[in-house]
């Protein structure tokens, strides 16, 4: 088994679209109908195996009520994947995706903008179809315009599509993690091995 990677995933979107619920459903298989606004940011971790590789996904949930400025640059630094989330029954939350994406790019300043993995999730598909405000086609068109971003429709309440979405999120984050990994090396570091001696020697 290869080394264990830590993948940092950030979920962004308007207040009330279900970011916390989605995260709770994926990690803890729990759903609560009570709405409780997230303050600042919080994260949960989940260990999973992707193609024989053990990874720990650190999923950061953010407060959608405030804009990016409330969150530190460090919060975005090192993100391996950004999930843009909206409520399919709330057109405004869909229209806000552009701003969330732009703000993320400014704050995170990724080296390769085009290939940074975004995943789009339309949540609350369990709600009555007549209340739906954003069609699948419309969301897919937006994703296509932005560079064929993966799009998933989910119900955090009924656990529909959640695992499938996070499977892709994990894989895309893993790819990003591999790419970014080289930049995180200490350039002046001296390899430990040149100082190491056989452990069997008695050095005391």
């Amino acid at each position: 088994m290869a080394r264990k990677s830590m993948l940092k995933v950030i979920i962004l979107g308007d207040s009330g679209v279900g970011k916390t619920s989605l995260m709770q459903q994926y990690v803890n298989k729990k759903f609560s109908t009570q709405y409780k606004a997230t303050i600042g940011a919080d994260f949960l971790t989940k260990e999973l195996t992707l193609d024989d590789r053990r990874v720990v996904m650190q999923i950061w949930d953010t407060a959608g009520q405030e804009r990016f400025q409330s969150l530190g640059v460090a919060f975005y630094r090192g993100a391996d994947c950004c999930v843009l989330m909206f409520d399919v029954n709330n057109a405004k939350s869909f229209e806000a995706l552009d701003t969330w994406r732009d703000e993320f790019l400014i704050q995170a300043n990724p080296t390769d903008l085009e290939n940074f993995p975004f995943v789009v999730i339309g949540n609350k598909i369990d709600v009555d179809e007549t209340r739906r405000a954003v069609s699948t086609q419309k969301a897919q068109r937006w994703c296509a315009q932005k560079g064929n971003l993966p799009y998933f429709e989910t119900s955090a309440k009924e656990a529909t599509g959640v695992n499938q979405a996070f499977d892709v999120i994990g894989r895309n984050a893993l790819q990003q993690d591999d790419v970014e990994g080289f930049d995180q090396e200490y350039p002046d570091g001296v390899d430990f091995s040149q100082y190491e001696q056989e452990r069997s020697d008695c050095a005391c």
Binding site: V73, D98, R101, L105, I106, Q107, N109, T111, D112, L113, E114, N115, Q145, K146, G147
Partner: peptide
């Protein structure tokens, strides 16, 4: 067109300044 192009240059002075400004 909301697509973003991939080409970026590297300049430590500007990179440092960007980090400072974003903060």
């Amino acid at each position: 067109s909301n697509r973003t192009s991939r080409t970026t240059n590297s300049n430590p002075t500007v990179e440092s300044t960007v980090r400072y400004l974003v903060q």
